[in-house]
Design a protein around this nucleic acid. Structure first.
Lengths: 211, 211, 211, 211
DNA sequence: TATGAATGAGACTTCATTCAT
DNA sequence: AATGAATGAAGTCTCATTCAT
């Protein structure tokens, strides 16, 4: 919900203005994020921000939206969607995510934060919406899996989804940690660690912990 | 780390002062929590809080500690520990957790918040410590399971732990939601829903999603 | 060390903001000086002061610097320096100081206060620096006097300086008192009293109290 | 002006209570002196202080009075008064003062502070009174000097007094500095430095700076 | 008489937002 | 459209003083 003034800016400036905000929100949380500091980092006047957005909340909400948009634009095209099931996705997603974390650590951390309930004080609605988007995606993977016969049929979709999401969340956490360990330039070492973990999780998701 | 002045208060007052703080922090996050509001709710003077704690952070940190202490005091004694494995625990914990959520929804939400990384800006150390305590508990369950032969042997303990934690977290989320749906007095209806869910998750953890 | 925001203000406003602060500090000391009161007197918002200075200490320190700068700008040009000795200076300075006291009683009292060690809790460094500046000036007068043969040679410069400063301090005190006695408009009466005193002190400094 | 409750305490406790206050006032100034901290240091309850004194100002004022009383009780008896003039006093006082500084540095610093105008916001009256006491003492020395013919007759007593006080103040400053340089145990080295300085100042006072 | 918990006014400081230029 | 100075509400924290025990 930025004002039209903002949308008329050239894209490079828009991006700069959003990334600086995201970095600030991610580092300090919403309440401690400082509009003046964002303006400084972005090289614009504090007043200008109020030409672009109604207020701090508006700015933040658009930062969330911008981040989600960034991911759908840059990530999903890479994953051919039809006919893929959870296991396919999981295996493919592991390496891909690592690369994403390396490339956009701030965005990823920001996304992870609001998905795990930081900022929960800010409009439960948007949080719900975000979650729904993610849910829809997983549910399609699950339906595909059931159609292809790779997923057990004796359990309802929602239970499967929750189960899957719980595990996925841990993978994300792990990927973030591994990529952070890599410092400025996480190399093949980190990649191998991550691949290994993904394969373990894949096996566990498929066949469980039981002996 | 409260001052001795606080520890000399009678227990009823201490509890009131901590519960009011926890409620405030849970509802508004750390930065938006308002010391004056807490004092009002607790029926004491704003200044008194600073007779009890060094500052807001100190107060918050003790709220975390108090909450953890509350759980270990009221919950763990109920779970006989020796020789129990993850599945035992999961099944037993389900109903128990529901009851806890019904009885202490605020404490539970507060605990869940700081375990899922809200407040991450506040002393990563405490977060690490909290996590470690939880980890140790799970690792013992896992070792027990491997000894009893109920857990697969071909996977390292840490992977199993992460997997288990991911799923557990979803159960907690669910339990909170279910108990919230029950309004003021969640009845047997909610209990049944929860039991069902726990059994589903238990099955999935044991045998996986694969067909 | 004011922020650039302050330095960009027009000079009239800067001066008003500094004079109000100096008056407040002089009347109440540092700890009892009230930022809100200063803002009111200066006709600006309390918050604005924090756009200009880091904090109260920063504000105070700049008040000291501003005062010293004021004196060097408005006073020293009047005193031709080369080849002057202590006695010349003393005689010349008397009347001049009286006029300064009449014109800027607050600034003078403020300066006297921090030179005599009120505010000593605030950064001993600045105090040292202030003193050094003054010392250098006196030492030059003394060297000139020795060169011209008007000062005794059998005593080290530092002793002479301390002796001289002790007496000078009393003259300042006296000038302040005399000019205060004059009320709103100290006239020739006061001037005569002061001239007399200066001549007495000059004689004493030169030839001592002994008979 | 302490309450009778205070005066009924045994002398050791009274002294402790006063010395702790003096130390606190000297270190932090009046406004920043903390009643609670004084009580802690003195090993009494904060509330007790209000059984002894009306309020903080009362406490402070009595600290001043106590200090002056201490000096008149412990110092002046040592100086045979009759028939002494300024030069006698100066020479005798030098070594004596050094010893006093070594023995009671806090008291001395405190006295020096309020004589040089720190605390000036606290009742100008008392300050004036303090000064008057000192003045009377000096005036007697001066009259003695004139009677004995050791002081010049062609100058009024008040000018001589101011002159003398100005110089004396510098000696005090110096003595404090020298004794501070000596660290925990200033030895003969410091004593010699001080004696030397006193002799220089005595000569200057008697015969002046002129050649 | 001694204690120390309780109080609450008031201080400094922050910062989102406005507005004149 | 952009700027950045100005605002003032609101927050945290301090501490002299009171008062019940």
């Amino acid at each position: 919900m930025p004002k039209t003034t903002f949308l008329r800016l050239d894209e490079e400036k828009q991006e700069r203005i959003m990334r600086c905000a995201i970095e600030e929100f991610q580092e300090n949380g919403f309440a401690n994020a400082n509009i003046g500091r964002i303006a400084d980092k972005a090289g614009i006047a504090k007043g200008s921000i109020y030409q672009y957005f109604d207020d701090k909340v508006d700015y933040f909400l658009y930062a969330v939206q911008w981040t989600l948009h960034y991911f759908t634009k840059n990530l999903d095209p890479l994953t051919p969607f039809e006919d893929m099931d959870v296991f396919d996705y999981l295996l493919g997603a592991g390496r891909q995510k690592m690369e994403l974390f390396k490339k956009e650590p701030v965005l990823v951390k920001f996304a992870q934060d609001f998905q795990s309930g930081r900022y929960s004080e800010l409009s439960a609605e948007i949080n719900a919406e975000i979650r729904q988007d993610g849910d829809a995606f997983i549910l399609r993977l699950i339906k595909n899996g059931k159609n292809r016969g790779t997923l057990r049929q004796d359990m309802d979709d929602e239970s499967l989804m929750l189960f899957y999401q719980g595990v996925m969340h841990k993978i994300d956490e792990l990927a973030l940690k591994v990529s952070k360990d890599g410092g400025d330039d996480p190399g093949e070492e980190q990649m191998r660690r991550m691949d290994q973990a993904v394969r373990s999780f894949s096996k566990l998701i498929r066949t469980g912990m039981g002996s």
